[in-house]
């Protein structure tokens, strides 16, 4: 999916994503704190909005192309663009190119070649292979591989880092590669199927008796934990970046 070597540097543009902008401010905050801890200067372009996926997935490409062009302008330049979401990152480096295949756009193309999912960037861009963090107590982590990180290096990168945290155990669960059922607008246009997919996913996750559900996409977590709460089986959940930051703090106490 990621077609070319992407730029690595100690200065990056950060895209918070609309979900972190609206709901999960702490995941965005943890991203910035992590990157700065690793010696990276983080620039947050204030005019950023969304990657355009809702319109793109609905088939309204004229609308999503407008949003893509806006993003390409906001994140113009030659710095790496770091995103705490496998889904929004894939939109930049794959979706945008698909919707512009008949009308190629240099800025959109440039954005595609500079975008990194944050954990992929930390592990494969910055070369961080172990994480000096720890949990106070032995902690079982269920890592949900979000679908839009298929074919990218994110999944392996996350497992590498999480496994190296002291007292962390990444526990396997059934049908790991099945979707959580969110799919953005899919979850509202196919509410029944989406809900069933999510419940099935939760069944598998719960079987592994995790202490914490972790993902590189807040969208999947929003869907899964929203379902879990209504079903009376709430589960603690965090973005990978929050786990990395929190366990680092614990280790430095």
């Amino acid at each position: 999916m990621v077609s070319t070597p992407r730029p690595v540097g100690r200065k990056v543009l950060f895209m918070a994503t609309c979900l972190c902008d609206a709901f999960y401010d702490d995941a965005a905050r943890a991203s910035v704190e992590l990157l700065e801890h690793l010696g990276v200067e983080v620039v947050f372009p204030d005019d950023q909005t969304c990657c355009g996926q809702p319109a793109f997935n609905s088939g309204d490409w004229p609308s999503s192309r407008k949003v893509a062009k806006h993003a390409a302008k906001v994140f113009a330049g030659d710095l790496p663009v770091i995103v705490p979401s496998g889904s929004c990152a894939a939109m930049h480096f794959h979706g945008h190119r698909l919707q512009f295949e008949e009308c190629p756009d240099a800025e959109v193309e440039s954005l595609a070649h500079r975008t990194w999912e944050i954990i992929d960037f930390i592990v494969n861009g910055l070369g961080i292979k172990t994480w000096d963090g720890e949990f106070e107590n032995p902690t079982r982590l269920a890592f949900h591989r979000s679908c839009h990180t298929r074919g990218t290096d994110t999944g392996e990168a996350v497992t590498t880092l999480l496994s190296s945290i002291r007292r962390a155990e990444v526990v396997p669960f059934g049908q790991t590669d099945q979707c959580c059922g969110f799919g953005g607008t899919f979850s509202v246009t196919f509410p029944h199927i989406s809900g069933r997919m999510g419940s099935l996913k939760l069944d598998h996750i719960m079987e592994s008796r995790p202490d914490l559900l972790v993902s590189a996409d807040m969208s999947c977590l929003m869907h899964l934990t929203g379902l879990a709460r209504v079903q009376g089986r709430p589960i603690p959940h965090l973005h990978v970046v929050q786990v990395l930051r929190d366990t680092l703090m614990t280790a430095r106490k």
Binding site: F23, Y24, D25, M222, R229
Partner: peptide, 10 residues
């Protein structure tokens, strides 16, 4: 109908 929404932190 099936899920809760997280609190808005916009």
């Amino acid at each position: 109908g099936q899920r809760t929404l997280p609190d808005w932190h916009g």
